[in-house]
């Protein structure tokens, strides 16, 4: 089943907290815990929104974002991406996230950003 949101985040406690917060809003949230296999997880799930950590093991959030934007399927390539970053930047000149949240983030801000992106 297609989830509303796919979150790619290697920190399990952050992923659990985010999933709890967003699930309470009625959105379905799938998790993928590693940079490796990240783009495959997006292609398989075809979520309405991707929440992507920038610093992931094996493959960075930036690289996954580049892979996504280069997908043959134009609809999939245009999937909105919310990047979670420690650096306040998307980290790449070629591919841009639709929104960026700097860690540590406020739960209300997270909720509001996702609501806006899924509207």
């Amino acid at each position: 089943m297609q989830p509303d949101i796919l979150m790619i985040e290697d920190e399990p406690n952050i992923a659990e907290a985010v999933r709890f917060i967003l699930s309470r809003e009625g959105w379905s949230v799938d998790l993928h815990p590693d940079g490796a296999g990240g783009i495959e997880a997006i292609l398989a799930a075809r979520p309405r929104l991707v929440i992507l950590d920038l610093m992931l093991p094996n493959r960075s959030g930036t690289e996954i974002l580049q892979d996504l934007r280069a997908a043959d399927d134009a609809d999939l390539a245009a999937t909105p991406v919310l990047m979670l970053t420690a650096r306040g930047q998307t980290g790449d000149d070629g591919a841009r996230a639709d929104a960026v949240l700097a860690k540590p983030f406020d739960n209300q801000e997270l909720r509001a950003t996702v609501r806006r992106m899924l509207a």
Binding site: I14, A17, V18, F20, I21, D106
Partner: peptide, 14 residues
């Protein structure tokens, strides 16, 4: 440090 702080902040807020 940042990851742990992020987790603590979100979890505590929940």
């Amino acid at each position: 440090v940042l990851s742990a702080v992020t987790s603590v902040r979100s979890t505590a807020a929940i």
